[in-house]
């Protein structure tokens, strides 16, 4: 009996060693990332989702060269790229704003035309906003996406650098397709972000964005 038992144990161990596969985690605990916009013609709301297609990568980002904004944006792109396991998103800085998919400007957002505006980071040190130009039928996203980073205090004020860093990551989160705010202050996509990096929930939400069919198609000028 002992010999049979040993053989069975050995066989079970070999089978477990050889046959078990990696088990992917269940990605629950997300927040709503889609943008709600009035249906045209009404009534009701359309739920709009977007992600950059693989053929659009790397997303071309032009940044106004002031207040170390290019450095903050480059880091924000690295941070968001590292969120993904399978290269779903990549961005690169470009020097020609006329070919950019995303334009990042210093200062407060200007007058809103027919754009959807996502306000963020209402800290005393800095603020951010992202403008999305979506057509009235809610099917097209006209490029470029415009991001505004507004340092509201002097460059050497304490807290300004970290505020710019996390606000830039937050706004680039909108630019990659997270069009809504998290209700949880522990997420970088909280409306007034406090944390410095995307949380596990931000990461799972970003993954969901890139593995859900988009309702918006990009249109270049």
């Amino acid at each position: 009996m002992m010999a049979i038992s040993r053989r069975l144990t050995f066989g079970a161990a070999v089978t477990a060693l050889a046959c078990g596969d990696i088990a992917a985690p269940v990605r629950g605990d997300l927040y709503e990332w889609r943008l709600e916009a009035p249906s045209i013609p009404g009534p009701g709301l359309d739920t709009l989702s977007f992600h950059w297609d693989r053929n659009d990568l790397p997303v071309r980002v032009w940044v106004e060269d002031t207040d170390d904004l290019p450095g903050h944006v480059a880091r924000a792109l690295d941070v968001w790229e590292s969120v993904f396991l399978y290269r779903e998103f990549e961005g690169t800085l470009v020097s020609d704003s006329t070919t950019a998919d995303v334009i990042v400007l210093r200062g407060a957002a200007g007058p809103k035309l027919r754009m959807k505006r996502l306000h963020s980071a209402l800290a005393p040190e800095c603020a951010g906003a992202t403008d999305l130009d979506i057509d009235v039928a809610n099917t097209e996203l006209r490029l470029p996406i415009r991001v505004f980073i507004d340092p509201r205090s002097l460059p050497d004020d304490p807290g300004i650098e970290s505020c710019l860093a996390l606000t830039t990551i937050h706004e680039m989160g909108h630019a990659l397709g997270i069009f809504a705010h998290s209700p949880d202050p522990e997420d970088i996509m909280f409306a007034d972000p406090e944390v410095e990096l995307p949380s596990a929930r931000d990461r799972r939400t970003a993954e969901a964005v890139y593995h859900t069919p988009p309702t918006l198609q990009v249109v270049r000028p």
Partner: peptide, 9 residues
Amino acid sequence: RRGFSQAQG
């Protein structure tokens, strides 16, 4: 770190 368990043969 992301919660994958076991390993792939």
